[in-house]
Design a protein around this nucleic acid. Structure first.
Lengths: 251, 251
DNA sequence: CGATGACTTGAGGGAATTCAACCGTCGTGG
DNA sequence: CCACGACGGTTGAATTCCCTCAAGTCATCG
């Protein structure tokens, strides 16, 4: 039906920014459709060729792990398509999703030789995987690239700080509204600007991201719908009153 | 009395790692007692001289601001003595302390030209202040320095991720225990290893860091004391049962 | 179709907050 | 010298927001 078609298109949009990559160049960095969004945006043709030599394309399917917290961090990752869930677990199973990674996001900024969090796929995901060793060597002689990585780390840090404010000091209602508004912005940043906000992650994922339970997320969303702030559709929500949502999210 | 003397020594210890800087070299980077802990640890004598040329020493007293969220970020800061409170505010005054900065910490990793959070002094604080412009220029030609900054950003990010887990998924009891254990580790890292954990910040600060109220912090600490896990002393706590505290904090 | 999984909805409970009072210390000024 | 208020902290009682537990709906799929 129509709804599903729209959803499918939305998901496809997220998976790859431009849906028709040149087949001949498929897999080649120079034809990468998220290059400008990613750390690789700072590389010229020569650098890119070398980068490509040390990178490996990996595809993982839904709920498959990219890496797991505590493991030796042999690789760094560059998300090229799909969405990943980044999370930490407590021994008793409680989970905190520290973020969702979108195409262009870099997963490799870590202070130790072990992954500080786990990452797995929400739907099918493609990444560039590089051995940390090769990557370290690569950046060592390319200061401008390092600068770019630094910018990415800074942006990630800022998001983390926003999230701390949300987790520590916002009500459930504010958390949901902030999440929707922030998520919409991030989708817009990668080129997905539609009225309907795609929510490919589950309610449980949202709950674990906002420090809530699945029931509270569900209840709050349906209340927002009752109050005509949004409409819940398959795979996402359509924002009717963006002004009110933004006001609730007020930084 | 004895308690106050011990406290004073503790505070002095935090303020400056080595209490007797060479007077002749006072204020000189080469004599800086937190250099090895800070980003400047990656600089050689020549670099250090240049760094010193663009840095300015600033002292601020208790509760004075270093910078404020939203302002144009003209400067970056390097904490050399004392402790700073880093926080974000909501329009209605709710506050989230995103971290406490210790000597050696670098405050300058930001993706925009505006400060993403506010910083002010807990007790008296000394910082090296550099214009962002000069700093950017400085790092541009020193890749190894940039690498060091990157390591610092990565560590900060990891701390932020830990804090998200704490804020989103831990109980009040676990939050307090985790905070005490983590804080003790950080103090140890800068050379302050004593039985008594110095807590120079107020109960309100702790509450705003952990996403709790001041009453809950107070109640939980006194309960810990009743249960013989610790003793509350002026300016800090003395940990009696570190095993239990660590278990509560269990990552 | 029966089973399974994602989500919703309702009723009741509880952890932490809110509201309020109180305590001890410190600095100030009458 | 001490009365005083301000301030940081503690403690108690009542409230509330969100969680827990439980049931029910709906779509998907073997």
């Amino acid at each position: 039906m129509a709804v599903d078609l729209a959803l499918e298109r939305a998901v496809a949009m997220i998976r790859t920014i431009s849906p028709n990559p040149n087949r001949a160049n498929f897999g080649r960095c120079s034809a990468c459709n998220v290059r400008s969004l990613s750390i690789c945006g700072a590389l010229d043709q020569a650098d890119l060729a070398e980068f490509e030599r040390i990178a490996r394309h990996i595809h993982v399917t839904s709920n498959e792990a990219l890496f797991t917290a505590g493991q030796i961090a042999h690789s760094v990752h560059n998300l090229t398509a799909g969405i990943a869930r980044l999370y930490k677990l407590l021994p008793d199973g409680r989970r905190q999703i520290i973020g969702f990674a979108l195409p262009g996001d870099f997963l490799g900024t870590a202070p130790s030789d072990r992954y500080g969090y786990s990452a797995d796929a929400i739907g099918s995901v493609s990444v560039c995987r590089l051995s940390r060793e090769a990557f370290t060597h690569f950046i060592a002689q390319r200061p401008h690239f390092l600068l770019r990585i630094n910018e990415f780390a800074a942006r990630e840090l800022m998001l983390a700080q926003e999230q701390m404010l949300l987790l520590g000091r916002r009500t459930a209602e504010e958390k949901i509204a902030s999440f929707l508004v922030g998520w919409r912005e991030r989708l817009a940043h990668i080129g997905d600007e539609r009225q309907t906000i795609a929510l490919p992650m589950s309610r449980q994922d949202i709950a674990d991201h906002l420090g809530l339970t699945i029931e509270t997320v569900s209840r709050t969303l349906t209340r927002f719908e009752r109050e005509k702030m949004l409409v819940i559709v398959a795979g996402g929500v359509r924002l009717l009153d963006a002004t009110r949502a933004t006001a609730m999210a007020a930084a």
